[in-house]
């Protein structure tokens, strides 16, 4: 009974945290469903300015300036677009919204895109984004369904491995009514929306609340990845090492060991430690593809 009440408390904390962050993300500027719906008009040939706007929006998108890219793509939606332009605009707009952290707006665009798009490529891209939106927003069952449909409908898609990775993650970590999983997906979303600090906070709360959750090892690994991305290499290595200590049986141990070795080799320029990590992988996980990779990297390191 005691354990149950703690569990309930933790669930509530995470849920509250989740709701707070979701609401904050909802407050971010973005397109309303209506505005998107009313702006979709087709024309036979795009005007020159439309092309220029398209180029500019894409440039902003590729340079990671998603807010601006979103605005430009929204504007483009009101113009006469060819089908291909229309497809690109909707897909990019959806992703931009998502990367902005505006899940609801992204979902509206995705819904609109599903109605408007009819070609396989476009539907494939939007279906993937829909899966991501559902996953990031913690709707695991729906995400599972969407991803499964994606795999079935688009078996040749290059995104299949990403989708499978998600599906596997969800399958593996369905304990405790998926609360830890939802928290983790939210952390991933924050990181995706370029909010690494928030992501780290969520992961910390997750690890503190559910230290023995199945997803805890993924959380540690992701923490390490975020820290590495923030160039806190020592912190990253510490998280990777922590994973090995806390979850020695985790499938992520060799992965994190390789990452740590890479950080030592490339960022910290500590070749000995890097070599030592590679050797550890080779010794501790000899019958794995990680050992093969470690052997190759070790050879490169020793050149």
């Amino acid at each position: 009974m005691k354990t149950l009440s703690i569990h309930h408390v933790v669930v509530r904390i995470v849920a509250v945290l989740y709701v707070v962050v979701m609401v904050s993300s909802f407050m971010l500027p973005g397109l309303s469903v209506d505005s998107v719906a009313h702006s979709a008009v087709y024309s036979a040939a795009p005007s020159a300015s439309t092309s220029a706007l398209m180029r500019e929006a894409t440039k902003e998108f590729l340079s990671g300036n998603f807010t601006k890219a979103s605005a430009l793509f929204s504007e483009l939606l009101g113009r006469n677009l060819t089908y291909l332009q229309m497809r690109d605009v909707l897909v990019y707009l959806c992703e931009s919204r998502l990367r902005e952290g505006n899940v609801l707006a992204a979902e509206s665009v995705a819904v609109l895109a599903t109605q408007k798009l009819s070609d396989v490529q476009g539907l494939e891209r939007i279906s993937f984004l829909k899966g991501e939106i559902l996953y990031f927003s913690g709707r695991i069952d729906e995400a599972l369904e969407e991803y499964m449909t994606f795999v079935e409908v688009n078996p040749e898609s290059p995104r299949v491995n990403d989708v499978i990775a998600r599906l596997l993650l969800m399958d593996e970590n369905s304990d405790r009514d998926r609360v830890p999983l939802r928290a983790f997906s939210y952390a991933q979303f924050l990181w995706f929306a370029d909010m690494p600090d928030s992501a780290l906070s969520v992961l910390d709360v997750l690890l503190a609340s559910f230290p023995h959750a199945l997803i805890a090892d993924d959380a540690l690994s992701t923490k390490g990845d975020i820290l590495r991305a923030r160039e806190d290499f020592v912190g990253a290595i510490a998280e990777y090492d922590s994973l090995k200590t806390r979850f020695p049986e985790s499938h992520l141990v060799p992965v994190c060991q390789l990452k740590a070795a890479y950080v030592y080799a490339r960022q910290l320029k500590d070749r000995d430690k890097a070599a030592s990590r590679y050797e550890e992988v080779i010794t501790e996980f000899p019958e794995t593809s990680f050992a093969v990779k470690a052997r190759r990297l070790l050879q490169e390191l020793r050149k």
Binding site: P158, N161, I164, A165, L168, D171, E172, H251, L252, V255, T288, S289, F290, K293
Partner: peptide, 15 residues
Amino acid sequence: RRSMHELLELSEAQE
């Protein structure tokens, strides 16, 4: 699952 994780890594590398 472990094999899948490894294959996912390999798939990414292959990609």
